[in-house]
Design a binder for these strands. Sequence first.
DNA 1: CGAAAGACCTGAGTGC
DNA 2: TGCACTCAGGTCTTTC
Length: 321
Amino acid sequence: MPELPEVEVVRAGVEPAVTGAVVAGIEIFDERSLRRHDATAGSFGDLLVGRRILGAVRRGKFLWLPLDSGRALVIHLGMSGQVLLRSPGQTDDRHLRIRLAVEHTESDSPGPRELWLNFVDQRVFGSMSVDSMHPTSDGFAAGYSGRGEGEWTGLLPSQVSHIARDPLDPAFSDDLFRAGLRRKKTGIKRALLDQTLISGIGNIYADEALFAARLHYEQPTASLDGAQGDALLLALRSILHRALVEGGTSFDAQYVNVNGQSGYFAHSLEVYGRQGKPCSRCGAILVRQTFMNRGSHFCPACQVVDGAPVCDSATRFQAPS
DNA sequence: CGAAAGACCTGAGTGC
DNA sequence: TGCACTCAGGTCTTTC
């Protein structure tokens, strides 16, 4: 599932291929992928065709391509979205929902003059849209944009405005995050998945970071002390960074980079998908519980609340598979 | 108002 | 072989 590292791999792949190019045409194969497009200002195609792409920016799991019109093409991969760079005329990918034909008109462009940017999405949880841009409230860059520069770096698409900064963002405020945790009345994992508090983290990296920080997913956020908060942030940054270096986590063909290649971080997972196997730290058998309509994976011996294991009843655990 | 639950999706896997 | 059912989870919407 694309979380921050996977989306960043896509951003880094798209940026050099499309920066400076003009959108020459679009094809929409499935209108559901435009669910997040607000057509008040114009149709998706009308707002896109003829516009020049200025860069590629990411905040959390949201990706956007700023346009010379002052708007941006916003891309969210959802559960199964992919952005694939193809040569014009190439056979359609399965689950192709939207295609952009882009053309480099600059004389000094190093890559191919024309290419297709295919938005492929099996489960249709992802989307593309053209959105208006607004200055960030803190005045810092809106997200990570590689070496991009221009006024657009300080502008945020309106549908991303409620998304918090991610922990790899230099403008991420540790203090703001800790204050947010103290204010909340919920468990730590639910808070990590709340993109308005901290962005970029999904089910896999939430489980991995909580394991690294030795925290149980149901520990109340308000009860975390300073050391636990620090350990959690350290774990989050370390895991996200390592996953990024390894090209993200792939279990199947549902996540690939812009060239269709898989990442390698799945080999480095300590708890996610490892229920029934021994904990690498203490040897206890790892457990999977259903939580928030998804799986929570953890070590019942070393991920505890306030020094005491939460595994009060063995019947709460699913049998190892 | 915040927290939690439900809706949206499709293909792989399972049981009969 | 085929059919019904379950599971995977990010985000938006609805409900409490």
